[in-house]
Design a protein around this nucleic acid. Structure first.
Lengths: 348, 348
DNA sequence: GAGAGGCGTGAGAGCGCTCTCACTCGGTCC
DNA sequence: GGACCGAGTGAGAGCGCTCTCACGCCTCTC
C-alpha cells in the first residue's frame, strides 16, 4: 500500500566508520557516552553532526522493546471527555509531560463498537509502552485488555465499579468532584440560600454521581424533588430547570453539574423572569473554555485543573514504566485526586 | 530508564512451527495470504488465533520502512488552531480517516521555541510516514524541515507567503474563509443594512485576512473606520465593538471574524442599549462548540466543517504516501478548500 | 618484574520481520 | 516422452540497532 521511498538516512555503521570506531562504541556514545574515552566521544559526536545521524527508532525498539510512545485512548468521542474543552486540555497536559521524557502520545479514538477491536489489537501489538485510558462506561472492554496483556495503564477519571473490581491497585487521576460540589453548595448556603436545587449530570457517569454525593454531603436531607438528572448539555439544563421551577417555584439557588447545563438553566430563569443572582443564585462546574465568562451573568463555578490532570496521568504512567522488575524495590504509586476550587463571578 | 519487562508475545516463527510451515509462508498469510494454498492459509490462521499472535510492528517497520503512523504537529497551542473546539474536531476527522487505513496519529505539540528542535528531530527520525502541519506564522521552521527530509506533508489552513514561496505544489486544506465572509456580508446587505462594520481577527493570520478580503469583496468601498482588528477573543470583541460604536454610532450591522469575538460584541451592544438584531445585526464565524447557541440572542454565523477538514487532510496525506515512485504515474493531488455555509439564528 | 585487576573497545549474535531467490512438483506443449 | 512453465514453498539474508562477552592494554601491588 504505502510505497514510501525512503530518503536514505545514515546508519550507526556509517557514523562508526567515519569516526574510526566500532559500531558498539558509536552506539555507546549515542546513548550517553558512558565509559568511552573523551577523545572518542568527541570524534563520534562530530561524525553524528556531520552526517546528520538520527537513530532509527524501529531498530532500537526491536531490541530494547521500548517504544517511547504511549497510547491515549478516548472512548466515545461524543461523550464528555472528548467534548472539546476537556479533550484539548487533557492532551496538552499529557503531551507536555511526555515530551519532557522523550515519549510521544499516540491518539486512539474509539467511535464505534468495532473500533474497540482495532484499538485492542493496536495496544496488544506492543506499539506503545503504556496506555492512558479515558473510558467511561462499565462495560468497556479496554481495561480488561490492558490488564490481560500486562500493559501499564492509568485512567482519566475514577473508574466505575466493574473496572475497579478487577484490580484494586488500579491507577487513576481524577478531579475532586465531590469536594468541589461540596464547596459550591456550601457557598450557596453561605449566601443564605435555603431551597437549593441540583441539576445532576448523567448518573451513569462516575463524575456525576460524585458531584451529586457532594451536594448531598452538605444538604443531608435535601428535598428529593430538588434534584433532577440532566445530561451536561445546555438543552438538558433548560429542560431540567423548567421542571425544577414547575415542581418547586420557591427554589432560591441551583447547583448545576456543568457550566453548559448552567447556561441552559440561566436562559430558562431569564425567560421566567427570575433574576440571577437576586432571586436564584446559580453555580456551575468545570470553568473550562470561555463558557462561564460568556453567560449572562458570568457564572460562578467550580474550576477543574484539566491540564494538570493530563500531566499527572502521564507522570504516573511514566513512573510505572520505570518500575524495577524486583517488586521489593518498587516505589508505591497511587491514584491522585486533583483539588478543585470555586471561582466566584456574578451568578452566585 | 523505562525498564519494561516484556510480556513475551508469540513470534511469527512460533506460528510457523505450530502450523507446520515456513516463516515465509506464515508471513504471506499474515499479510493477506496471496499465493498460498487454502489449506495452508487455514492452518496458519488457526495457529495465529490459538497463539494470539500479533505482528511486531517494530520489526516490520525496520524492513518495510513504513510506520503506519503520521505526525500531527500543532504549533503554538495557545493559538487559534489549538483553541479547544477546533483542535478536537480536527483531530477527530484526522483520526477517523487514518484509522480506516490502519494508521495512527502521533501528536506533537510545540509549546515553546525549544520544542521545534524536538519535533524536528522526531520527524527526521523516521518514526512517521508523513506529517499534518498546523502552523500559523511565517517563520515556522517546520515546513523547511519536512521539505528537506522529503516528508510528505499536508497543511491545515492555507500557509502564508513564506511557506508557499518554497514550494508551489504544496498541499493544504482550508475552509472557504473568503467565501464564507462574503456570504455573511451579503446576508447583512440583504437585510437592508447599510453601515456594516467588521471586527477582524489578528491580521497576521491568513484566515483573518481572507475573511477581511471577503468582507471587502462585497463592500468594495467600505468606510475604513468600520473595520477594526480584534484577536478572536471575547475581550477583543468587546474592545473592538466599543471602539466601533464610538467612531460610528450609526452602524447597523457587525460581521465578527469569530463567534467568540461576536459574543464580546453582543455584550457591549447590550450594555450600550442597542437591540440585536433590531438596531444592530450581528453575524459571527465558526459555529463550533456551543458558543453561537449560548449567546443572547443566538448568533447567526458561518459554519466551518472542521471535522471534514481534518478528514480531508488525512486523506490527502495518505494519498501522497501511496504515490508510485514513477512520477509519470502519479495522480495529481491538489489542495482543497472546504465550503462554509451561513447558519441563521436570531442575531441577524 | 610477574601477576592481578580494571577499564575501554570490538566482534558478533540476535531482536522479529519481509522479501528475494532457488527449488520442487504437477501439468502442458510439441 | 522430454523440455518447459508456472504456481507454491522454504532457505536465508538483511533491515539498524543494542548488548553480552572476550580481549588487549595499562596501572597497581608485592
Amino acid at each position: 500500500m504505502h510505497d514510501r521511498t525512503a530518503v536514505s538516512r545514515p546508519t550507526l555503521e556509517a557514523v562508526a566508520a567515519r569516526a574510526g570506531v566500532s559500531r558498539a562504541t558509536a552506539s555507546r556514545v549515542v546513548n550517553g557516552g558512558q565509559g568511552v574515552r573523551t577523545a572518542l566521544v568527541e570524534r563520534v559526536r562530530k561524525a553524528v553532526d556531520e552526517l546528520g545521524y538520527v537513530p532509527n527508532r524501529a531498530a532500537r525498539t526491536l531490541v530494547t522493546r521500548r517504544n517511547d510512545a504511549v497510547g491515549v485512548v478516548i472512548a466515545e468521542p461524543g461523550s464528555r471527555v472528548f467534548s472539546d474543552p476537556f479533550f484539548a486540555r487533557h492532551l496538552r497536559g499529557i503531551s507536555k509531560e511526555l515530551a519532557a521524557h522523550d515519549s510521544q502520545p499516540v491518539l486512539l479514538l474509539v467511535e464505534e463498537a468495532g473500533d474497540y477491536d482495532r484499538v485492542g489489537r493496536y495496544l496488544a501489538g506492543g506499539h506503545v509502552d503504556g496506555a492512558l485510558l479515558f473510558s467511561l462506561h462499565d462495560d468497556d472492554p479496554l481495561p480488561a485488555i490492558t490488564r490481560r496483556i500486562g500493559m501499564p495503564t492509568v485512567y482519566g477519571g475514577r473508574p466505575g465499579r466493574a473496572d475497579a473490581a478487577g484490580d484494586r491497585s488500579l491507577l487513576y487521576v481524577d478531579s475532586d468532584n465531590r469536594g468541589g460540589a461540596r464547596e459550591a453548595v456550601r457557598h450557596l448556603v453561605g449566601l443564605g440560600r435555603r431551597r437549593i436545587a441540583h441539576i445532576a449530570g448523567p448518573l451513569d457517569q462516575v463524575a456525576s454521581v460524585d458531584r451529586l454525593d457532594g451536594f448531598r454531603d452538605v444538604l443531608i436531607d435535601a428535598d428529593p424533588r430538588l434534584i433532577v438528572e440532566g445530561d451536561f448539555t445546555p438543552g438538558g439544563g433548560e429542560r431540567a430547570m423548567a421542571e425544577l421551577l414547575d415542581r418547586c417555584p420557591d427554589l432560591d439557588a441551583v447547583f448545576a453539574a456543568s457550566d453548559l447545563t448552567a447556561s441552559g438553566a440561566l436562559r430558562v430563569l431569564r425567560e421566567r423572569g427570575r433574576r440571577v443572582p437576586e432571586d436564584v443564585a446559580v453555580v456551575g462546574f468545570d470553568d473550562v473554555a470561555e463558557v462561564a465568562e460568556l453567560t449572562d451573568p458570568p457564572l460562578t463555578t467550580v474550576r477543574q485543573d484539566i491540564e494538570g490532570m493530563g500531566r499527572l496521568m502521564a507522570r504516573l504512567l511514566l513512573r510505572s514504566l520505570e518500575e524495577p522488575d524486583d517488586p521489593a524495590e518498587r516505589l508505591p504509586l497511587s491514584s491522585v485526586i486533583i483539588p478543585t476550587r470555586l471561582v466566584r463571578r456574578a451568578s452566585a
